[in-house]
Simulated scan of single mutants.
Amino acid sequence: MLTLEGLSKNFGGLPALQEVSFRLRGGDITALIGPNGAGKSTLINCITGVLAPSAGRVDFLGRDLTGLPAHEVTRSGIARTFQNLRIFPRLSVLDNVLCGLTLEAGRSFFSAMLRLPPLRHRERRLRLRALEALDRFSLADKAAWPAGILAYGDRKRLEMARAFVGEPQLVLLDEPVAGLNAAETAAVGREIVRLKSEGHTLLLVEHDMDLVMSIADQVVVLDSGRCIARGTPAEVQRNPLVLEAYLGRMEPTA
């Protein structure tokens, strides 16, 4: 579904990514792991158009997305969440999810001013889809709440609801369980597995190794901007480069 070929990103003279290449299979959960500063979020940003790569290619379903702006990447069928929450605290929970349907809301200023029937029908349809997304993530009862008063775990689920509301073909989850307790982490893990069972393809950036090794079909390991290993969770756990660069250092605190 997604192919990265020699993807590199430099900030000035500092290489953050160095010729990263791997493929994502449709219907899989692929975990992207690595120490802090390994380049994981930079890679996500290059895929989704937040950053333009310095070199290499991003191919999604046969289409070259390299260097396209974020809204064009979204239009192609890719959605994401963020490592640092990007919600609108003063908007309602429902309106936050509706923001994930912006590309389907129409572009006619004339229609919006006159409130023509087709526009009203579209708005009702999008509102229903947003409510269905909230129900999927157990937030429907909080649809009218200001997003800023949600508990941290609910904010994480709100970002996931906004990412999935547009029915994307690929979703990139950037540390979805960071800051959650064990029970909340287990709940998010079950939701991710359920989303896979519904046919979604997911790229998961995460530091929680227990979660990664229990739900991922494939694991890709970055270290210092380079891809040092990829394979099944069992294969990655046995890889000496991974043990030295990442898992070995994480064992005392995992």
Rank of each mutant, 00 (worst) to 15 (best):
I29R: 08
I29A: 05
I29G: 06
T30A: 03
A31Q: 07
A31S: 15
A31D: 02
A31E: 05
L32D: 05
L32P: 01
I33Q: 04
I33S: 02
G34S: 11
N36S: 06
N36K: 08
G37Q: 15
G37R: 13
G39D: 00
G39Y: 00
G39C: 01
K40I: 08
K40A: 02
S41I: 02
T42R: 01
T42Y: 00
T42G: 03
L43I: 02
L43F: 03
L43D: 05
I44F: 15
I44M: 14
I44E: 05
I44Y: 09
N45R: 13
N45E: 09
C46A: 11
C46Q: 05
C46M: 06
I47L: 11
I47E: 04
T48M: 02
T48E: 05
T48D: 06
G49C: 11
V50N: 01
V50P: 02
L51V: 07
L51R: 03
A52W: 12
A52M: 12
A52C: 08
P53W: 08
P53G: 04
P53Q: 06
A55V: 06
G56R: 13
R57G: 01
R57M: 07
V58C: 00
D59Q: 02
D59P: 00
D59C: 14
D59W: 03
F60Y: 12
F60T: 03
F60E: 04
F60D: 03
L61E: 15
L61F: 10
L61A: 14
G62T: 10
G62A: 02
G62N: 01
R63V: 11
D64L: 03
D64P: 02
L65V: 07
L65F: 06
T66E: 12
G67W: 14
G67N: 07
G67D: 10
G67F: 14
G67P: 13
L68Y: 12
L68N: 04
L68G: 07
P69N: 14
P69D: 10
P69A: 10
A70F: 06
A70L: 12
H71K: 04
H71L: 05
E72M: 12
E72P: 06
V73N: 09
V73M: 04
T74A: 15
T74E: 15
T74P: 03
S76R: 13
S76D: 06
S76P: 06
G77R: 13
G77I: 12
G77T: 05
G77V: 09
I78K: 00
I78T: 00
A79G: 07
R80E: 03
R80N: 10
T81I: 02
T81Y: 01
F82Y: 07
F82D: 07
F82S: 08
F82I: 05
Q83C: 11
Q83G: 08
Q83N: 04
Q83Y: 14
N84A: 14
N84F: 11
N84T: 12
L85T: 13
L85W: 12
L85M: 09
R86Q: 14
R86L: 11
R86T: 08
R86I: 04
R86P: 07
I87H: 13
I87A: 11
F88N: 06
F88H: 05
F88D: 02
F88I: 09
P89W: 13
P89D: 15
P89F: 04
R90L: 15
R90T: 15
R90Q: 15
L91I: 00
